[in-house]
Amino acid sequence: MLSAILLIIITIFFPPIGVWAVADCGADLLINIALTILGYFPGHVHAFYIEYVYYKRKEESREGIFDNTPAPGVYSSNVQTGGRGYGTIAQAA
């Protein structure tokens, strides 16, 4: 919880750092950098959307809900899986 609050504070000041923290280097980061250069507000909207999807999927995986449908506009597999990675996840009994 504390990490999410810290990430939100960082994202308020510089959105690409927030995206990099959850999505690593990739298409999402490049899109966010371009949106931030085009205007400060679009970069924030994109960054908070990426973080929302990441933390939502992370919370769902803790509850045993594994949503495999891709979130629209998110290209990072780390965000799509909520940080679960690429390995096999045992389903809850």
Rank of each mutant, 00 (worst) to 15 (best):
V45C: 02
Y75W: 15
L35P: 01
K56G: 00
R57A: 00
P15H: 04
H46Y: 15
Y52M: 14
N32L: 01
I12G: 04
L29V: 02
L7D: 12
K56L: 13
D67H: 03
A21R: 09
V22W: 05
E60H: 10
C25T: 08
L2D: 02
A4D: 05
P16R: 08
V45Y: 15
R62F: 09
V79A: 05
S3D: 12
I9V: 15
T36V: 04
I12H: 07
G26F: 07
W20H: 06
S76W: 03
V74T: 07
Y55D: 02
V74G: 03
F14H: 03
G18E: 07
F13A: 12
P72V: 12
G83V: 12
E60K: 12
L30G: 15
E63V: 00
S3G: 04
V53M: 08
S3R: 11
Y40S: 05
Y52P: 05
A4C: 00
G43S: 11
T11W: 01
N78I: 09
R57S: 00
D67P: 03
G85A: 06
F48L: 15
E60D: 14
A4R: 08
V74K: 01
G85L: 08
K58F: 04
S77Q: 15
I50M: 11
I9Y: 06
S77L: 09
I89H: 13
E60T: 00
L30F: 09
L6N: 07
W20M: 13
S76A: 01
Y54R: 05
F13L: 14
A27T: 14
L7W: 05
S76H: 02
V22I: 11
V22Q: 04
G18K: 04
Y54Q: 07
E51M: 15
I10Y: 04
I37S: 03
P72Q: 14
I89F: 12
V22K: 07
T81I: 02
L2G: 03
E63G: 02
F48P: 06
K56N: 07
V79N: 06
W20C: 08
I8Q: 00
G39F: 15
G43D: 06
V53C: 10
G83W: 12
Y75R: 11
A21T: 02
